[in-house]
């Protein structure tokens, strides 16, 4: 075997590592490029604000946008307060005992359950057992359980980044634990918690499997009136028109994908910038 010059071998390995990195970030670039290039022509105000026509082969995606919005907002309203409270419990109150260990294990495993299994569970318990029917609320409940571990983990990191000395200073002035959390810890952890929440919203907006049998419908001719209505959502709509409808014009599929992508990327960028901004302007 030829013994390579160590310096040369280093250069060669760096090249390989660089190529691997290129391979890892190429898909995201390619996906964005392909979708923008093919979808930009159909996306206009009318596409965004009109109902689908002619078996969805024409018209817009307005009901899917409204439906996505309804489900995502209901989900985050359910999961954010609960998740933040759970994070507060774990970070500020929990002692190192069996229960805490069980909770941590629960979070890890909740995070690992496949989304379609959440769909099964949500269908069984919310749609059937609690008789909520296929509805926004059933879908939102299912998604909020799925998103709970993510919210807990990001919020916990945010709470944990607030220096312990702030808590001690507050306690030493006779302020109670909850008051300290409410007025010192939470305000300082808020940027981190919000960043996590925005990323969660982005993630929920793109979910399909958990709401497949709990909230969505193939086609709904009107906008949702209440929490107990079925809805169309963007990702599910994209799935339908790209697999279930023959002779579907590609431009509409790309247009739908583009709208979904822009929504999600915008939120991700906002979250990233908020994170960078607050890291730079941190008060401590």
């Amino acid at each position: 075997m030829i013994k390579l010059n160590p310096k040369l071998s280093q250069k060669f390995s760096y090249l390989i590592l660089f190529l691997a990195t290129a391979l890892a970030i190429m898909p995201i670039m390619a996906i964005i490029f392909i979708i923008v290039k093919n979808g930009i022509s159909v996306v206009n105000w009318e596409f965004l604000t009109s109902m689908p026509k002619n078996g969805m082969r024409e018209g817009g995606i307005f009901p899917a946008i409204v439906g996505t919005f309804a489900i995502v907002m209901s989900t985050i309203m359910l999961t954010l307060p609960t998740g933040v409270c759970a994070a507060i419990y774990l970070n500020e109150y929990a002692r190192d005992n069996m229960l805490t260990r069980a909770i941590k294990l629960g979070i890890v495993n909740l995070a690992g359950i496949p989304s379609v299994v959440y769909g099964l569970f949500g269908f069984g318990i919310f749609v059937m057992f609690l008789k909520l029917g296929v509805s926004i609320i059933a879908g939102a409940l299912t998604l909020s359980i799925m998103e709970l571990p993510v919210i807990i983990t990001t919020s916990r990191n945010a709470l944990n980044s607030v220096p312990y000395s702030f808590r001690e200073a507050s306690w030493s002035l006779g302020v109670s634990r909850w008051q300290t959390i409410r007025h010192i810890v939470l305000p300082n952890a808020l940027p981190g918690i919000m960043t996590g929440a925005v990323l969660s919203i982005a993630r929920i907006s793109g979910e399909t499997a958990p709401i497949l049998f709990t909230a969505v419908a193939f086609y709904v001719p009107h906008l949702p009136h209440s929490m107990f209505d079925q809805v169309m959502t963007l990702p599910y709509h994209l799935y339908i028109i790209s697999t279930q409808i023959p002779n579907m014009p590609n431009s509409i599929i790309f247009g739908t994908a583009l709208v979904l992508l822009v929504m999600i990327l915008t939120m991700s960028f906002i979250a990233i910038f908020v994170r960078i901004y607050f890291r730079k302007h941190r008060k401590w």
Binding site: T21, A24, I25, P27, I28, A30, I31, I34, I35, L199, A202, R203, S205, G206, E207, T208, A209, P235, Y236, L238, Y239, S242, T243, N250, I253, A257, L260, L261, I264, L265, S268, I272
Partner: peptide, 22 residues
């Protein structure tokens, strides 16, 4: 680079499936 890699995680699976199909 890290942000770019993480951005990939935000792409919905239906979009990835669709791109895969096409």
């Amino acid at each position: 680079l890290k942000s770019l890699v993480e951005l990939m995680a935000a792409i919905p699976s239906v979009v990835i499936g669709f791109i895969g199909m096409i």
